[in-house]
Simulated scan of single mutants.
Amino acid sequence: MRQVPFGATGQTVSELCLGTMTWGTQTPADDAHRQMDMALAAGIDIVDTAEMYPVNPVRKETIGGSEAILGDWNAANPARRGDYLLATKISGEGGVAREGALITGAALRESLEGSLKRLKTDYVDLYQLHWPNRGSFQFRKNWTYDPRGQNKAETLAHMEDVLAEADKLIAEGKMRHIGLSNESAWGTAQWVRVSEDKGLPRVQTVQNEYSLLARMYDTDMAEMSVNEEVTLLSFSPLAAGFLTGKYQNGAVPAGSRMSLVPEMGGRKSARVFDAAAAYLEIAARHGLDPVHMALAWQQTRPFAISAIFGATTSAQLEHILGAADMVLPAEALDEITAAHKAHPMPY
């Protein structure tokens, strides 16, 4: 499987990343463990989870459930812990973990300790901030985003506080690298600048939504990614399932995300189905599986991406793995560009 740079570490990770957010709700533990075996056998060497998982829906009583399932696999396979990079996240303001408190240095330590216990491991390779304290334009908030309530001095002090604690946790061997999620270009650049100015750990990754239907990353974030060597861990690369075609023509498969979350986190609209149809038609014209096309397209971008996919079942995982190392024909890429111009921001 193709490898991509892991930030500025000099390491690499696989082009596909196994996501776990359905483990414990839609995906039972036995199938989740089967997915771990399959993913590692296929060459995937990065697995992403979070303290707030599972989702669909997020509930206080299930916090940490996905980590616990992964932890049971770790406990049953202790010799394989070094075979993959383990990424997890601390939740932030408004979440259900830690009563929705802000992320601080102290909270970073507290949440990481909880994750380590659930994951049954001594360390995580990548510890990510699930969303910024100051808020984010991700999750369809871009339509009304207003940063005027931010305080730059407080933001920079917060960054130094968190990075200073991360430095201690790295020295203690409890984490190896720090990453971001749902961040902006300005925010990511400030994290990098603070780390460089203060001699603190450098952010290596940012986990933002990115797919054929969600391409806000293509401008300022892309420039930041290249110049600062921050790797994108793209979530929802299949646009929450819209790019598979399974929701076209009014279909709502039993047990699917749409059956549990009808509005799909604000993604569902007539424009989305029209845009998805355009990409599905491109795949059909070129004899491509639409899932494979959507994932392989990410490796054509001018910045490093490891695409986080979720497989509700191991059968879905087997299908997704067919995207590994795929090279898309130039004609299909030209048509994808044309479709993007015709359907630039479907949600």
Rank of each mutant, 00 (worst) to 15 (best):
Q190A: 04
W23Y: 10
M224T: 13
A240I: 12
V272C: 14
A278Q: 12
R176F: 03
H292A: 05
A304G: 06
L180C: 05
D30E: 15
D218G: 12
K168R: 15
G310A: 03
G250W: 14
A284N: 12
M175Q: 08
E154G: 11
K141N: 12
Y210C: 01
S211F: 00
D334K: 14
D325F: 05
A240G: 09
Q150W: 15
A332W: 02
H343R: 12
N133F: 07
E335K: 08
P302A: 11
I170Y: 04
V206W: 13
K60L: 05
T27M: 04
S115D: 01
G149N: 02
N227Y: 14
L126R: 02
Q150P: 12
S14E: 06
I320N: 04
S91C: 12
D146P: 09
A153Q: 13
G82Y: 02
P78M: 01
Q316G: 12
I282V: 05
Y279L: 09
P346T: 04
A275P: 00
D146Y: 01
M175E: 06
Q150K: 15
H340A: 15
A324H: 01
P147Q: 02
G92A: 13
P344Q: 07
D220T: 13
A171W: 09
Q35C: 10
W23M: 08
A214H: 07
L116Q: 05
Q11K: 13
A239P: 10
R140P: 02
A339K: 09
T88A: 00
V226Q: 13
L213G: 00
D218H: 03
M221A: 10
S234L: 13
E229Y: 09
L102A: 15
H340P: 07
A275L: 06
E99R: 15
Y127E: 07
E228R: 13
R81V: 09
E15K: 05
H292C: 11
I170T: 11
N151R: 14
N208E: 07
R148F: 13
H340Q: 11
K89N: 08
A254C: 05
T219W: 15
A222T: 12
T104W: 06
Y210E: 06
D218W: 08
D325Y: 08
I336F: 03
L108M: 13
E172R: 11
S225Q: 09
E165W: 04
V47K: 08
T121D: 01
F309H: 02
E331S: 13
E196D: 10
I69A: 06
Q299S: 07
L321Y: 09
F235Y: 14
D125W: 01
L169D: 02
V194Q: 04
A101I: 05
G287Y: 07
N208K: 02
T205S: 08
D30W: 02
L116F: 06
T300P: 01
K168T: 14
S269N: 06
M258N: 11
L328S: 08
P237H: 07
Q204D: 11
T12N: 07
M224D: 08
Y210D: 02
L16C: 10
L317F: 11
D218C: 03
R148W: 13
T121E: 00
